[in-house]
Amino acid sequence: MSPVPASAAARVRFDSVEKSFAGASRSEGERRVLRDVTLDVAPGEVIAILGTSGCGKSTLLRIVGGLDGATGGAVRLDEQSIVGIDERTAIGFQEPRLLPWRTVTQNVALGLPQGTPAAAGRERVARLISLVGLEDFADHRPREISGGMAQRTSLARALARTPGVLLLDEPFGALDALTKLRMQDLLLSIHEAEPATILLVTHDVDEALQLADRVIVLGHEEGISGATIIEELTVPGTRPRDRGSAELAELRGRLLSGLGIDRHGSARGIETEPGIPIFPY
């Protein structure tokens, strides 16, 4: 029997969540960032949240993590409203945010829930470090390891909390392309080993399609301030997915146009001629 209870993946329900920030000056009014975000996330589901920069995807994640409060509506974790920082959530930030004076092991241990018995905590930290493949670097300081390793450490720290919901805020955004692909595969195997509900904020459409069960796109409707869910789609097939699949390519185009990226360049009068035969051949 494991001394630390395995996490029970939590259900997350967004109920007309709204968030406004006070204006920078007195003359400037409130600025609404999010409005009417309603979403039901099943336990263990992986949801990718897409959107253009500044559309409030990170804010939505921070509300679930309890770092920001919603100004309207509610976020419920297993039917309990979130008030402040919640033990059942853990965040992986875009930057690793490791304490530079602590070793990889000590940084991961920071994520352990308060009151974890020392022996059980050590065991769990060692297990997570081997899960993210950093056994050989367990005693290194953050400045002695690469950016990808630092991000893996940060991921292990979040997992140390045995979270019901894992919140990832563009966790691979700052990594080089190849490291990013490896980290995506790692995240999938982690999700298999530690099945938590995952909310993944990203601006990378391929990443969303590769990792998520469902993809939602946050965006603005014309004339209304505040972003809301403008597109929601279920990714077909089971993970791990073939990165080159034609079906995903089709979804990719749809999502990109949802983000305001014209897939054919037709806006500039470029005619599209499918040079490669379209599946099925």
Binding site: G65, L67, I85, I91, F93, E95, R97, L99, L110, Q114
Partner: peptide
């Protein structure tokens, strides 16, 4: 601030 926020997010 990022470090402080991260530590707060982990319950410190």
């Amino acid at each position: 601030r990022n470090l402080v926020e991260a530590a707060r997010a982990f319950g410190l």
